[in-house]
Design a protein around this nucleic acid. Structure first.
Length: 681
DNA sequence: CCGGTATACCTTTTT
DNA sequence: GGTATACCGG
């Protein structure tokens, strides 16, 4: 297929800043890969950098460039995520900032643990889970705004902000003491490195002569600054994106970056791609009608030379189960009518918890499906526990993880012993690892505990040494799991043997991942493995990653966020209700409705041939059945563009609902009685 | 120190 | 309806 005129213009652009405003389905990826291919004809590959947000996007882009220019010409080309590039730079340069090269990368679980331990230091009340979560979010957002512990400006009238101001410096010190950095630090420290070491910056400026950025609308302020620094000399920055698809504002992305590009990089050329090659006319018309309700966009109107296609349908179902049945029925029907494969269908939802009803229905009907995202592999406790051992082997300063495994599996080193060790470590100004190694702990800890600690540290030393030899990594790890008897531990903990088996499987999946990493890599190291694992996209479980999953012939289930960048012949956008599609959290807390609208727009524009919107008249939320109303976005798409089907009313009549009402009544009575009691006593 | 049960809280979206 | 924490008894 040939490039159209604006696409070609973007590919041919060479020097200076370029903004490509690429509407959904306008052949954006093709433009980027073609432009890289064109550059490689006259520029050494190692001077070209393409940055993406997900590993999958990076891999895809790299593959497509190689298809066009061949493996040899692409050698040295950097296609990577922002975070991978950051880590790559930091591994080489971080000692200039006072960290050591074997630093750990802390995910949310590690961060939470660290903050949790910090909170009670300052306050008598113990840090509740909510508080930890809130403080963590604020620290992260501060980092995204480039506020350090020193420059953080709390809102004086905001309790939580003041707490954050106290915790933030300690948190950052804690990280450094553990020789660890968090996800936001990856980018922030890279930027700080550049600021404090101009010579280092210059070196990278000279190396990266042509910089391209995909999904520019998702960049946050730190990423923007990095790009500005790196392109400062030559100005060869080409960014591609679509402000209408900016859906990561909650994570600090600034759609302003793409709206202000022309002011930030004077002389920038702007090219709009508005011809859509993906969806039918009717789907585009509906999506356009919706997105036009958003203020302050780059004016853009998608059009297609293709056919009008089938009607877009909205269907109101009785409840969640009915909705699932309707989708499955539609899949059966369309598959038969148009000779489609299962993989041609996608079910998209706002929250991951919505997947359950569809999974059940699909399983019931024996339809193969794949679930993308959701409960993440690396968030699972059993996986994190194993990884914690590996992290400590690499970085013995990593006390967050050291404390995590100190008594896992249970080895008689309980909470009080741990606290005594920590106190001792503070008192003697000695890292925990050294303290435990030093022996002589019988007095402070007691004979028995000291013995257990001794045994623990012996074991750790032994395996730490064994891990140095890259050859036997996998075998060493297998031995470790065996010696720790983690499998038994998992069976003992779980109350359901099936659940236990799943956990054991997950644990072994880590070993499998390590094994396949070792096979792939020329010089495998534990460090390298952990780095890979830390930087994985949320929804690629190690080996059978997103692509492999998509290749199977199965219906795809995923969140609207995960769906960005993908396309399917038939899309079912479910939960089209107030409180779900504009999510209640956003409605209640005065969040950004426009972003919800964009999310909806992203979902709609994934569809090539057929788009169906579904909602329910009542739905179970937190286990309660509640009446629902149609999403406000439905009204924003005028009648002829979306055909309304089904008109279930929110009537309360089923036996289940009556029972629900009764139990609600008794719950109210009980709580009233409790209050009365409290008053009288 | 451990394992059990009661409980509170919760659900956005994720590199 | 599910998980993470709290508290209590052994």
């Amino acid at each position: 297929m040939q490039l159209n005129a604006p696409q070609q213009a973007a590919v041919d652009h060479r020097e200076g800043a370029l903004l490509v405003l690429a509407g959904a389905g306008s052949g954006k990826t093709r433009v980027i890969t073609s432009r890289i291919a064109a550059l490689l004809k006259s520029v050494p590959a190692e001077q070209v950098v393409a940055l993406t947000f997900t590993n999958k996007a990076a891999r895809e882009m790299r593959d497509r460039v190689m298809e066009q220019v061949g493996r040899a010409s692409a050698k040295g080309l950097i296609v990577s995520t922002f975070h991978s590039l950051g880590v790559r730079i930091l591994r080489r340069e971080i000692e200039r900032l006072g960290y050591k090269g074997n630093f750990s990368i802390y995910g949310e679980a590690d961060q939470r643990r660290l903050i949790k331990d910090l909170l009670p230091l300052r306050r008598q009340e113990r840090g509740s889970a909510q508080e930890v979560e809130e403080v963590l979010a604020r620290i992260s957002s501060a980092k995204n705004r480039m506020q350090t512990p020193e420059t953080f400006q709390p809102n004086r009238h905001d309790e939580c902000d003041l707490l954050t101001a106290e915790v933030y410096p300690r948190y950052q010190q804690g990280l450094k003491a553990c020789n660890a950095i968090d996800f936001d630090d990856i980018l922030l420290l890279t930027l700080q490195l550049f600021a404090s070491h101009p010579a280092v910056l210059r070196q990278y400026q000279q190396q990266f002569r042509y910089i391209m950025v995909d999904e520019y609308q998702d960049t946050n302020h730190v990423q923007y600054c990095l790009l500005r620094e790196l392109s400062a000399i030559h100005g060869n920055l080409c960014v591609v994106g679509d402000d209408d698809q900016s859906i990561y504002g909650w994570r600090g992305a600034q759609a302003g970056n793409i709206l202000d590009f022309e002011q930030d990089f004077p002389g920038a050329r702007v090219i709009k791609l508005e011809q859509n090659y993906r969806s039918t006319g009717r789907i585009l018309a509906a999506a356009n009608a919706l997105i036009e309700h958003n203020p302050g966009r780059h004016e853009k109107r998608l059009w297609t030379a293709g056919e009008q296609g089938a009607e877009v349908v909205y269907r109101c179902c009785d409840d969640g189960e009915d909705e699932a049945m309707a989708v499955v029925a539609a899949i059966h029907r369309e598959r038969y009518r148009h000779q489609l494969s299962y993989r041609d269908f996608a079910i998209l939802y706002r929250t991951n918890s919505q997947s359950r009803a569809f999974e059940e229905q699909l399983r019931y009907e024996n339809i193969p499906y794949v679930l993308i995202g959701g409960q993440q592999f690396f968030d699972r406790k059993e996986v994190r526990d194993v990884l914690a051992y590996l992290k400590v082997f690499v970085n013995t300063q990593d006390e967050v993880n050291l404390l995590r495994i100190l008594n896992y599996p249970k080895r008689g080193i309980g909470e009080s012993t741990a606290q005594r060790l920590i106190a001792l470590s503070v008192e003697r100004q000695q890292p925990l690892w050294e303290l435990m190694q030093g022996g002589d702990l019988a007095q402070p800890l007691g004979e028995k505990a000291a013995q257990q600690v001794e045994a623990f540290i012996q074991l750790m030393q032994r395996y730490r040494r064994a891990c140095r030899h890259g050859e036997r990594l996998t075998a060493t790890m297998e031995e470790l799991l065996k010696e720790l008897r983690l499998e038994d531990e998992l069976y003992r903990q779980a109350d359901d043997p099936k659940q236990a088996r799943r956990r054991v499987e997950n644990m072994h999946e880590v070993v499998n991942a390590l094994s396949s990493y070792c096979e792939r890599e020329a010089v495998p190291t534990l460090e390298g493995f952990l780095e890979k694992v830390s930087l994985l996209d949320r929804d690629e479980p190690l080996r059978n990653n997103k692509e492999e999953k998509l290749k199977q012939d199965a219906v795809v289930l995923m969140s609207l966020h995960s769906s960005k960048g993908l396309e399917f012949p038939c899309v079912y956008l479910v939960g089209f209700e107030e409180g779900t599609l504009p999510h209640s959290k956003i409605i209640d807390e005065g969040g950004d409705i426009a972003e919800e609208r964009r999310l909806c727009y992203v979902g709609m524009t994934r569809a090539r041939k057929q788009l169906m919107l579904l909602g329910a008249a009542r739905r179970r939320r937190y286990g309660r059945l509640q009446p629902q109303t149609a999403s406000r976005f439905l009204e924003e798409i005028p009648e002829p563009l979306v055909r309304r089907e089904g008109q279930a009313e929110a009537t309360l009549s089923s036996p289940e609902e009556q029972q629900q009402q009764a139990s609600d009544f008794f719950a109210r009575m009980r709580s009233m009685l409790k209050e009365e009691k409290a008053e009288t006593s």
